[in-house]
Computed example of a mutant assay.
Amino acid sequence: MTVKPYPLKFKPEMKERVWGGRALEQFGLELPQGHIGEGWMIGDHPNGTTKVAGGALDGLGLDEIREQYGREWFGSKGFSEKNGRFPLLIKLLDCNDDLSVQVHPTDTYDRLPAGELGKTEMWYILDAKPGAKIIYGLKDGIDRAALQQAIDEGRVMEGLQEVEVKAGDAFYIPAGTVHALCAGVVVAEIQQNSDTTYRLYDYNRPGLDGGLRELHVEDSLNVIAYEGAGATRMNTDDAQAGSWLTIAESPYFVVDKGVVRGPWELSTSADSFVILVVAEGSGSISWGEGESQSVKAGECFLLPATLGSYSLGGEMTVIRSLVP
């Protein structure tokens, strides 16, 4: 059966986390009971595979779409060369409490689980309570020996940089960057398709099962980029209507912010799919021969590389991701 390409929306995979809450309900998402920290909005991973909601491919998993249509729909660059999966994982995060202090490996780390990738990511802050902050890198002069000593002496937090955040801030977090989201923020996360996280510190708090969560101190110390991995941050308030502002750039993804104020004519290319995350407001995506889909804040769409011309309408802010 030949299926015409159309914007794919998926049923999110919700993940309970000790630091989660109920804030994702503000987007109209249905949450199961518990402390929901992560909504995997577009995922093709053994730990979470999202299924299409609506249209001709309703009910198909992203893995099945990859197998049937991937080479055409994902674009010439739209595959992970290492494991064949969809290359990105798109999440919404509700940080009702502080996340663990953590770091992710690169693709070349020799202790990666079989089939896993490294994890370079970026955050776009959707909402932040007054005074909310994140942990973003080590303080100057902290090397492996100094960090190990701080861990041994129970003062690891003294070596970490804290940054206050607000809605609209963007943070690029290459593998090797020590980081942690803290309480009071809601985030859109675009990342390599990986679920490998090394916890350096977790506040000695119990997990969902009542026991202390596992730490990965040796792996963390091994993969940290002590001289910096190239992390960058950006205030994106200057984004102009009808143009793209690049807010993160890596070998794995390019992420742009766009402000929609009325019709905006766009197009996909044969190189890559396009992912759109609606950060605020509402509007529509139109394509093909008069086809249209209403969209609103918190919704995420995968536009096949073969979609071609499309138009965004309404009044909204969108975050666009593609593979460079």
Rank of each mutant, 00 (worst) to 15 (best):
E162S: 11
F253Y: 15
G308L: 06
P105L: 08
T246P: 00
C300I: 06
E280T: 13
T197S: 05
G207D: 07
C300N: 14
D143T: 03
L92F: 15
P105A: 09
K51C: 11
V217P: 02
L212Y: 04
K51L: 03
E67V: 06
P105H: 09
M122V: 08
G242D: 08
S80Y: 05
T232W: 01
L208P: 03
T197P: 02
L117P: 01
A114H: 12
E67R: 15
I319N: 06
G48I: 02
R155C: 12
K257N: 07
S292Q: 15
G207R: 10
H45R: 07
L302H: 08
G43K: 00
A248M: 13
G168K: 05
T106E: 13
M41V: 10
S194P: 08
A188R: 01
L312R: 11
F253E: 13
K133W: 00
Y6L: 02
R17G: 00
L200P: 00
G20K: 11
E227L: 01
L60V: 04
A279K: 02
L24V: 08
W287V: 05
H104K: 05
V259P: 02
Y136T: 07
I42L: 13
E218C: 01
V165Y: 05
E64A: 14
Q240P: 03
I151C: 04
I90E: 14
N222V: 05
A239M: 11
V259R: 15
G70Q: 06
R205D: 00
R111K: 15
A225G: 07
H45G: 09
S272T: 14
Y201F: 15
P130Q: 12
V52L: 02
R199S: 07
Y203D: 01
D195F: 07
L276F: 13
I285P: 15
Q161N: 15
V223G: 00
D44T: 06
N222Q: 13
W73K: 11
L62Y: 09
R85D: 09
G258E: 05
G154H: 02
L92H: 12
G55M: 09
I65M: 11
K296D: 01
V318I: 14
A128S: 07
T50F: 03
E291D: 14
G43E: 03
V101D: 04
T2W: 10
E249H: 10
H216E: 11
C182K: 14
L303Y: 08
G48N: 06
L245V: 08
D97F: 02
G34W: 09
P130D: 14
P130N: 12
C95S: 14
T106L: 06
G184D: 03
V255I: 14
G70N: 08
G115W: 01
D110H: 12
E64F: 07
S220V: 04
M157G: 03
P12N: 02
V260I: 15
A128F: 01
